[in-house]
Design a protein around this nucleic acid. Structure first.
Length: 492
RNA sequence: GCCCCCGUCGUCUAACGGCUAGGACGCGGCCCUUUCAAGGCCGAAACACGAGUUCGAUUCUCGUCGGGGGCACCA
């Protein structure tokens, strides 16, 4: 940490394994890496760690990239042959870099810093079980490290498959300098000779990760806390290869409401699910930024680009944070409120399509939507809250029916209003209010005795937008005919 | 079991030895108001515990307890 070498260009990366969707934790890691890179005018690279051939899927790659793009983040580079299919730049794929890893594997082997291990899966399992039984730590005992050339030759000629293990130092300790936690030290004798090359002929995570982070000139490795205990092993590999270390920053985890690692049990964890529920990307970004990071004044809402200008590692929290969907939802409503209506409608399009609201049959959608903007918490709620403008006949809520319309005298009020408004001009907010207040006064009614039935008659609801603005937007014809239908309904 | 990390209102957090421990979500009340929201004001709500160090500890040290993560030919 006390390093006097000139600070290199900031380059961060997000390196997901494509074995599922991008979840909230991964999204937060991506965000922090992205914010940090953008803040420092550096690069952010995406690297797909697809060396687990069994679990990696193309669908996961697509979902992860879609998620990152939806959240409004971008990445900077990738192999040119993927530029077309992945646009604007392709991420790196580790499976396309096998020759690179092989080169450094050979170097370690040649220098005697790694060795071939001929133990089979079964033998290793047996060793682990025995260790457990004898209450020893379940570590590889290093038996293949001590093989003589003769023994090795015999195993080779017998065609025995092998993996490659890295020689961990037997004593001393490895210190992990961490920008968030300070120096964390691990005893070497507790580390085992980890496999860096699989029998199936490919690198393992800890090896490929080190090679790539070095070759890609990553300056800051910002990743989840679960990787902290991998770091001493990785540091040993850096040193064996003669490479200098990147800076490390391990982010605290994100917990579910019950205090355990956030997972499917806790509800929606995939970024795409939040999109589908009607959250705005900017709101999710803002909320996630505050999960483990804060400014010294505890600022909550950040303007466009303000997260980038204010983000720093120093504001990162050491202790884990609990994900709170309620606060996220509040933040989303804040963002909805400050989004211009045309933009809001653009974002809400898929939800209108799903709700099958025929917006041709009524007032301009923009006007209708603007009326209740302070009420929307999710984009998905918008169609349901404006739909009454567009229905052929009003759907009355139970409450509107029982608490308002089916009250004594309401029918007369509605009939009176119908007559009063039938030829009224101009049918705009202020004149309407004056006229209807006069109507109340003339009939000796309290405003509430008129306003509530009127609202229920034309909208079917007991809650809703400002009454007179709503009438104006709905238009005289529709208002009068709806009052009439409601009155008729009460006569029946 | 072993290793590592963490511990301020229910939740996200501010505080970098000295203030009535501040803000935000949520919750309660009041105001505004034709309803529902939004908005404004007010309120309840926290330094895990025990020893030290110090004139003084939420802050530094140690221990206890509690929570989390890691101990794969998965990443």
């Amino acid at each position: 940490m006390t390093d006097n070498s000139p600070t290199p260009k900031v380059r961060t990366r997000f390196a997901p394994s494509p074995t599922g969707f991008l979840h909230i934790g991964g999204a937060r890691t991506t965000l922090f890496n992205w914010l940090f890179a953008r803040h420092h005018k550096g690069d952010f690279v995406l690297r797909i760690e697809d060396t687990d051939e069994v679990r990696s899927t193309e669908d996961s790659v697509t979902a992860i990239l879609d998620s990152i793009r939806w959240m409004g983040m971008d990445w900077d580079e990738g192999p040119s042959d993927l530029t077309q299919s992945r646009g604007p730049y392709g991420p790196y794929f580790q499976m396309q870099r096998l020759e690179i890893y092989r080169k450094y594997l050979d170097q370690l082997l040649k220098e005697g810093k790694a060795y071939r291990c001929y133990c089979s899966k079964e033998e290793l399992d047996a060793m682990r079980r025995l260790a457990q039984l004898e209450k020893r730590p379940p570590r590889y005992d290093g038996r293949c490290r001590r093989l003589t050339d003769k023994q090795r030759g015999e195993l080779e000629t017998a065609g025995k498959k092998f993996s490659v293990r890295f020689k961990m130092p037997a004593d001393g300790a490895t210190m992990v300098p961490d920008l968030i936690r300070g120096a964390v030290s691990f005893e070497n004798k507790l580390q085992q000779d980890l496999v860096i090359w699989k029998t199936s002929d490919g690198p393992t995570y800890n090896f490929a990760c080190v090679v790539d982070d070095h070759l890609m000139e990553i300056s800051h490795v910002i990743r989840g806390d679960e990787h902290l205990s991998n770091t001493p092993s990785q540091i040993q590999i850096y040193e064996a290869l003669g490479w200098s270390l990147p800076r490390f920053a391990h982010l605290s985890m994100i917990m579910g409401p019950d205090g355990t690692k956030l997972s499917k049990r806790h509800g929606a964890t995939s970024v795409l699910e939040y999109r589908d529920q009607g959250f705005l990307p900017a709101a999710l970004r803002n909320y996630l930024a505050l999960l483990g990071w804060s400014t010294s004044d505890s600022q909550q809402i950040f303007e466009e680009d303000e997260l980038i200008s204010k983000f720093d590692l120093a504001g990162c929290q050491k202790n884990p944070a609990t994900f709170d969907p309620v606060k996220l939802t509040w933040m989303n409503s804040e963002y909805i409120r400050k989004t211009p209506v045309p933009e809001l409608l653009e974002m809400a399009k898929p939800f209108f399509a799903a709700a099958k609201v025929d917006t041709a049959k009524g007032p301009a959608l923009e006007k209708a939507t603007a009326l209740e903007r302070e009420k929307y918490k999710l984009l998905s709620e918008i169609p349901g809250l404006v739909s009454f403008f567009y229905q052929d006949k009003v759907e009355f809520s139970q409450k509107a029916m029982d608490k308002v319309l089916r009250q004594p005298g309401v029918k007369d009020v509605l009939n009176g209003l119908r007559d009063d408004l039938r030829g009224f001009e101009p049918f705009t907010e202020k004149p309407l209010e004056d006229r209807i207040r006069k109507f109340c006064a003339d009939k000796g009614l309290k405003t509430g005795q008129v306003f509530h039935p009127l609202r229920a008659a034309v909208s079917g609801r007991t809650d809703g937008p400002s009454l007179f603005a709503m009438l104006e937007i709905m238009g005289r014809e529709k208002v009068v005919s709806r009052i009439e239908s409601a009155a008729a309904l009460l006569s029946a």
